[in-house]
Design a binder for these strands. Structure first.
Lengths: 330, 330
DNA sequence: CTGAAAGCGCTTACAG
DNA sequence: CTGAAAGCGCTTACAG
């Protein structure tokens, strides 16, 4: 249905210059003379030229693509981070390749392989990294960035915070508020487990009795709350606060508790995680832990830029911290 | 930090075959002899070869990438569709390039240009299409697919449903339930407007009085509900049902109404749109309109596959319909 | 089933 | 500021 797509040479012919000059104009307009630039601009418009970035990337070995790997799209805590990232990257002419890893290392591995195949400038990952993947990534020229995670010895750049410490902080906060019987709901994945461990360690260190616990799969969502709540009621002693791995789940618990005639937080307190937009808007407003997802995006992008400018980023840990926000629900 | 990345030639040398044969093995293992295949497999493992899809795409003019364009990531109705799509595509070795258009035609245009630059095999778009974009897309070799939309004369393939009809159905449903004073909340964007128009036309055609109305920006979220509800209370006559453009907003309205001491649906009914997972889980459960997002994803992918197999897809409209789900809230 | 060779559409030293 | 030319790493008729 289409005549051949115009190439750089077609534009060059139209403008009466060499293709090298057109290439320079496309990538950095300032380096060509003003009158030449004008002719080229016209030629591009006439021909409807659209650069071929496959060819460009191959020749320059810079794909102007970055891969972003997250577990899920639905109700994900990363959405704000991803949204900021995609926006800023797009503004800089960089494309985002999206990968959904689930909780499987195997899927992560396939996606990293795919990203490497496309010679992405960087891989931004929230997934669990196996030794094999680490090796694969280490020998690739692109930058590897782990976000929402802060391992002792990162593979490339890590932008995140201590999940263990966040768990501890939640424990201290609840203790200080006088809660005595927490129910800890932990989602799949290593990060949730680290927070859970931090919480439990701190709680017991402070002389608290062992919390009751429950597990949920991901993506963590509102609907898990019904089962969690029902199970809780069958406990020998009813908990006085529920520690949730996500704000969505926390919201569900608030609603379930209210539907059962309990007042939140008087009869049952609830604490979330992530400070999603919802947390400050629902009724009662949700006590939760805020992570600055936009900052994570900014730091990651800054690292990509510097790496792109030829700077050797080495191994680096960037701690963006977290912040407990006390609202009405606990 | 890295020795040169191994190429097809390196693998060929290791295996003692030509690079053409290695290429064949990589793309279609069956066409090479079993013993040769074994040698190549070993050579790939030894060298740690990772194919360069930039080069591959350039040579074959098939990028194995598809662009997916949506307005927003957060609280978006498209998340399920996108999630299905990314999963299935990844399984077939195709990568998704993610673009966030917002409500701006300009952004959409830039992203489509970027997608074309990467010579994507297909563009899947939910965005508004200007005449210029249509032209750009028409002359490109890739397939263009509009989803969640069903224009009379699609540019390429359209997979969606009639938003106007959905609006009509909601009106008929509410009429049949005996509601008399609807309050219609419309989000930005042409699709929401079509539903709104459908609703209002049908409502008035059935002799109903003109509904009161409100507008919200996107992404449509829980938090808009507070203002909407407050404004509603100042109306001369209180509406008996709120017609929401999204389930999230509907959820917010339910909570606001309850916080004000109203019973849902007795004192105020609420109807959502999208049948997000939440809708069936919240209390009261939400009456809403279901769209089969996964089916939209499947149809889109099927079209891409057929186009990839050389079939001329022409212009085509695929109506996936919608379904009103009556639950407790209205 | 396999190889030699041309070609995909760019970028980038190098020279002027 | 501009051009000629080599090269990026693949794929794919064509021939055998």
């Amino acid at each position: 249905m289409t005549e051949k797509t115009p190439t750089l040479d077609d534009v060059a012919a139209h403008a009466g210059v060499s293709s090298a000059t057109v290439s320079r104009f496309v990538n950095n307009p300032k380096v060509v003379a003003a009158t030449t630039a004008e002719r080229i601009r016209a030629a591009i418009a006439e021909t409807g030229y659209i650069p071929n970035l496959l060819a460009g990337g191959l020749a320059s070995s810079r794909s102007k693509m970055v891969a972003v790997l997250i577990p899920h799209l639905t109700d994900s805590m990363f959405n704000d981070t991803i949204e900021s990232m995609v926006d800023e990257l797009a503004a800089a002419g960089t494309t985002v390749m999206l990968g959904l890893t689930g909780v499987s290392t195997e899927r992560t591995e396939q996606l990293i392989h795919a990203a490497l195949s496309r010679r992405v400038d960087a891989i931004i990952s929230t997934g669990p990294i196996s030794g094999e993947i680490a090796e694969m990534v280490r020998r690739a020229p692109g930058l590897f960035i782990q976000i929402w995670e802060l391992p002792e010895e990162p593979i490339g750049i890590a932008v995140g915070f201590s999940h263990h410490d966040a768990g501890c902080d939640v424990a201290r906060f609840l203790l200080s508020r006088g809660y005595r019987r927490p129910h800890v709901v932990t989602a799949e994945g290593s990060r949730a487990r680290m927070r859970r461990d931090g919480f439990v360690e701190e709680w017991r260190a402070s002389g608290g009795t062992a919390p009751s616990e429950a597990a949920v799969d991901i993506p963590s969502r509102y609907g898990h709350a019904r089962r969690i709540f029902a199970d809780m009621r069958r406990l020998p002693e009813m908990p006085d606060v529920v520690v949730c791995g996500s704000d969505y789940l926390a919201q569900g618990l608030v609603v379930e508790a209210q539907a059962a005639g309990l007042k939140v937080p008087e009869n049952l307190a609830v604490i979330g995680f992530g400070n999603s937009q919802l947390a400050g808007e629902m009724r009662p407003t949700l006590t939760t832990v805020e992570i600055d997802g936009a900052r994570i995006a900014r730091e990651a992008i800054a690292a990509i830029r510097r790496h792109g400018a030829g700077e050797d980023m080495g191994e680096r840990r960037i701690d963006v911290g977290f912040r407990l926000i006390a609202r009405e629900s606990a």
